[in-house]
Computed example of a mutant assay.
Amino acid sequence: MAGNARAVVFIHGLWLHPSSWAPWLELFEQAGYRPVAPGWPGVADTVEAARADPGAIADHGIDDVVAHYAGIIAELPGSPVVVGHSFGGMIAEKLLGQERAAAAVAIDAAQIKGVLPLPLSALRATFPVFSNPANRHRAVSLTEKQFRFAFGNAVSEEESDALYEKWTIPAPGKPLFEAAAANLSANSPAKVDTGNEQRGPLLLMTGGRDHTVPESITRATAKQYRHSSAVTDLHEFPDRGHSLTIDSGWREVADTALDWLAKQGL
């Protein structure tokens, strides 16, 4: 890899360990990038260690995560591309709006301030957190059945269970509570500078069978960027669910991101 290769920062979402990006890191390195996948604040280096210490992950909110990744980006040579999934997609959007990244790919990105649709499937997917208000300050784990609905509904039950066993970790409830209240707060952490004319290009990806971040949320997110002339593209994978970055079809999603970056001159 060339010494001046552009960095790509991969940002995981809730319930997945950063090591779940491993196949993407290899592919992007082969494509000439310098990829890294740091975890959220408090996330241990391995899945097993993260499961063993959920308290270290708990009570980190959106602003904490943005500041964490902004600090990582500040240490990189040049402006990176950021690629995020789920809440990591929202974080990627915020970093792009703050002009901390050259471009962003937001995959099934969590709902930002201003997005109004709230499909029933999204409520069901996040019920394990919202079922108890005290979970705002806790880390919450999913059961295999809950993961199957929220992530693995578009793959076989066998594959969903294997993904659950390999990659899932507890997740802080705080970001979900913050996003849920976003439209009631002028200064919500879920607010993104969607009107920024100077930011780099953004690709929003959506899975047509996603229960956690349904297509309607991603399309409503795209509309939030209508007042900016900066590039905002939308790509749908009609038959994919929320596990699209880690399941057996991950390569199609990754190749789509690489092709789009090439078209942006990145």
Score class of each variant (00 low, 15 high):
179 A>L: 07
191 K>H: 05
149 F>D: 13
247 D>M: 10
162 A>K: 00
63 D>Q: 14
200 G>D: 06
252 E>K: 14
8 V>C: 06
252 E>F: 08
134 A>G: 14
42 G>V: 05
156 S>A: 15
24 W>R: 07
252 E>D: 13
37 A>I: 03
265 G>K: 12
29 E>G: 12
37 A>R: 01
107 I>W: 00
205 M>S: 05
201 P>K: 00
256 T>C: 13
64 D>S: 04
122 A>F: 02
60 H>R: 09
213 V>S: 11
69 Y>N: 14
40 W>F: 12
65 V>R: 13
161 D>C: 05
266 L>T: 12
126 T>H: 09
246 I>K: 06
186 A>H: 02
229 S>T: 12
36 V>Y: 09
167 W>A: 10
190 A>Y: 01
50 A>Q: 04
173 G>C: 04
228 S>Q: 06
3 G>S: 07
199 R>A: 07
52 A>M: 05
116 L>P: 10
109 A>F: 02
192 V>H: 02
253 V>K: 05
236 E>A: 15
142 L>N: 07
62 I>D: 11
110 A>M: 08
185 S>Y: 05
192 V>W: 02
108 D>I: 04
205 M>V: 13
265 G>I: 12
23 P>G: 08
248 S>Q: 10
12 H>N: 15
170 P>I: 06
228 S>M: 03
63 D>Y: 05
48 E>M: 03
25 L>K: 08
131 S>I: 08
231 V>H: 05
46 T>A: 05
97 G>I: 00
36 V>C: 10
169 I>G: 06
77 P>Y: 04
157 E>D: 15
199 R>Y: 01
239 D>W: 10
77 P>G: 13
182 A>G: 09
162 A>T: 02
34 R>W: 07
59 D>I: 02
55 G>F: 11
185 S>F: 05
244 L>F: 08
171 A>C: 09
187 N>M: 01
112 I>L: 08
219 R>S: 12
154 A>W: 12
82 V>W: 03
102 A>F: 02
21 W>Q: 12
250 W>S: 04
200 G>I: 01
26 E>I: 12
61 G>V: 02
86 S>I: 13
203 L>K: 00
107 I>Y: 01
143 T>D: 05
91 I>P: 01
141 S>H: 05
5 A>H: 00
121 S>W: 00
37 A>E: 09
147 F>S: 10
73 I>V: 07
14 L>I: 12
100 R>V: 00
254 A>P: 03
224 Q>W: 11
145 K>E: 15
186 A>S: 04
51 R>M: 08
220 A>L: 11
120 L>K: 08
55 G>M: 15
33 Y>Q: 10
127 F>D: 10
132 N>M: 08
72 I>F: 09
209 R>S: 03
227 H>L: 14
110 A>Y: 03
63 D>V: 11
205 M>W: 03
120 L>A: 14
205 M>P: 12
62 I>Q: 04
212 T>S: 15
17 H>L: 14
128 P>D: 09
144 E>D: 09
100 R>S: 04
56 A>E: 07
124 R>A: 10
264 Q>E: 12
114 G>A: 02
264 Q>F: 08
67 A>V: 13
131 S>T: 09
238 P>R: 05
